[in-house]
Structures are given as C-alpha cells and as structure tokens.
C-alpha cells in the first residue's frame, strides 16, 4: 500500500495553544482514513495544513509525492476538499455551482455524473439556499469530487445531520472509495469512524494518542464486554462494584454505570445477587461490545462529546 499522504512531526501553535503538537502518520492509497477526536483537538488544523490552506510552523507534509508548502497549486489540482462550513453561492442552483467549480480545473467530471454520485438528481435545478442540511453536505461532497481527485478530504462531513442523512452520506463516501479515491475524514462520531474507517487516528490536544483499525484499537484496549445499566433505590456512589467477579473496570457517568468484564454471566449473576442483598434494582441493562467510545474514554479519561 503506497502512501498518498505523509505527515512528519507536524506542529502548529497559536500563541500558547498547541493546536497541532508533533503529529506523524501516513495514509495509504485507497483507504478510508479517519481522524477522530473531540472539538478543538486539532483535527481541522491538521487537515487544512495538508490541504495547503494553512502553513505549519514546522514539520513535513507530502501529498501524492508533492511538498504541499512548495507546490500548493499542484496539490490542489489533484485533491478534493470539503470544509466544515458548507455555505455556497446561495442563489446558484446545484448544477450551476458544480459547473462553476468545474471551470477551475482543466479536467473535470460532468455535472450530471457528479449529481448522480451524490443522489441529488431531483435537486439539480434547486438554489443551494433551498437545500436541506444533508443535501448541502452531499453537494459539498460533489464539489470535492469535481476534479476526479485522487484524495478527498472531508472535514466533519456529517456534523449536524439527522441519522438518516448521515447514513445516506456514508453510502456516498463508500462509493467514492470504491471508485478508487482515497478518503481522509475527520469526525467526532465514534459510530462513524467504526463504520467507515479502515484506520483511525485518535487525536487529543494536538497529539495522536492511538492509530490503528477500529477493531484493532478496541481489541488492544478491551478484551472485555461492557455491561451498562442504571440503578434505582440506592445512591450509586455509596457502594462499590469493583469487587464483582471478572470486572476489570467501573465507570460512572451520571446515572449510568458501565462495568467492563471478562465474564458477562458471572458478573451479571453477582450484580443481581448484590442488588437483592443491598436493596437496589438494576434498570435499563444491556450488554455490548466495547466501542471506540470506550477506547477514547480509557485513553483520555473523558467522553468525546464533552
């Protein structure tokens, strides 16, 4: 797998704030690479340096074998970009905006082809200001595809979308990859990273704290299952569950308690037994595999959305 993006020891400080603090990674051709982290972790800054929109303080960025700092236009001609804000020319139609962007590149896809790729056929002649949030996101993905890019960068493409619009955009992104492009996306949705990404870089405070495929990340940090429930009848904080059999870790988040366990049956039996003995009821119980959310929590001690 040849690398299409190579980042070495990238740094970008804004005064005291270390937005990007020594990041290194490579992205292979044809993969969907995700950068996962909370708001303000440095995702957008990193992506925009790679796209040639910002200058790094130090570090090396090579895109498709080109030095971004020296040949930004050559890079821009071969990549596709979607920014976090997707405001467009409000009084142009979908087709007009696509044709406008096509005029910036020597070679481009036909407007109709692009419209079909993002399923906007019915909105081709609608003004962009009349599009819904999801449709606008799909248009901005289409704009990123105008020049048949070898890499497409999507900065939080599904933020603010309802679940249905999100799923429909995921399908578009998977199609883009099957068409042969490399996809580089940032997100703060765990589910999105797990579902879409071949590899995920978990980023916090401007540093990469883990980088692997989602399954490998979960496997590396949790062999266990997570048992999640709420408690009625007794203050949760007033007793300990850490001594239950097979439990490796206990987390409490408001009313919700999560037990990570190597033996779900043993833990559950002991949990109910203790409930009867000390007088609390277990409610809203479910057992699940560990997720990237759990990994993030373990690595940073915080939930990603806070």
């Amino acid at each position: 797998m040849s690398a299409v993006v190579e980042v070495r020891d990238l740094r970008k400080y804004y005064g005291e704030i270390k937005a990007v603090d020594g990041i290194s990674f490579t992205v292979g051709r044809g993969e969907i690479f995700g950068m996962l982290g909370p708001n303000g972790a440095g995702k957008t800054t990193t992506v925009e340096i790679i796209e040639g929109l910002r200058r790094a303080d130090s570090g090396q960025v090579t895109v498709l074998g080109l030095d971004v700092r020296r040949q930004p236009d050559a890079v821009k001609a071969r990549i596709g970009v979607q920014l976090q804000t997707t405001a467009l020319f409000p009084r142009l139609t979908v087709r007009e905006v696509l044709n406008l962007f096509r005029s910036f590149f020597p070679q481009s896809r036909e407007a109709d082809e692009l419209i079909a790729m993002v399923n906007l056929q019915e909105k081709a002649n609608t003004l962009t200001k009349e599009l819904s949030g999801g449709q606008r996101q799909r248009l901005s993905v289409a704009l990123a595809l105008v020049n048949q890019p070898e890499i497409i960068f999507l900065d939080e493409p599904t933020t603010g979308l309802d679940p249905q619009a999100r799923r429909s955009l995921w399908e578009v992104i998977e199609q883009v990859r099957s068409a042969g492009a490399t996809v580089f996306l940032t997100t703060h949705y765990m589910e999105e990273a797990e579902r879409l990404c071949d590899r995920v870089a978990v980023i916090d405070h401007g540093r990469i704290i883990a980088l692997d495929s989602p399954e490998a990340l979960i496997r590396a940090h949790f062999q266990e299952r997570a048992v999640e429930f709420e408690i009625n009848g007794q203050q949760a904080a007033s007793f300990s569950l850490e001594d239950l059999p097979a439990v490796t870790q206990v987390r409490q988040d408001g009313k919700t308690i999560t037990l990570y366990t190597n033996d779900v049956e043993a833990t559950l039996a002991a949990l109910f037994e203790r409930g009867q003995r000390t007088g609390f009821q277990v409610d809203a119980l479910h057992v699940r595999r560990a997720t990237l959310e759990d990994v993030f929590l373990k690595l940073t001690g915080r939930r990603i959305r806070d």
């Binding site: 929109l53 920014l83 020319f89 590149f105």
Partner: peptide
C-alpha cells in the same frame, strides 16, 4: 464570512 473564499482557495483558482 461564509468561508466561500476559503473554499475557493482550496482549488487551483
């Protein structure tokens, strides 16, 4: 303000 300039800046225009 609506970052259209920025978006255009991400093309070779």
């Amino acid at each position: 303000e609506r970052q259209i300039l920025k978006r255009l800046g991400a093309t070779p225009l």
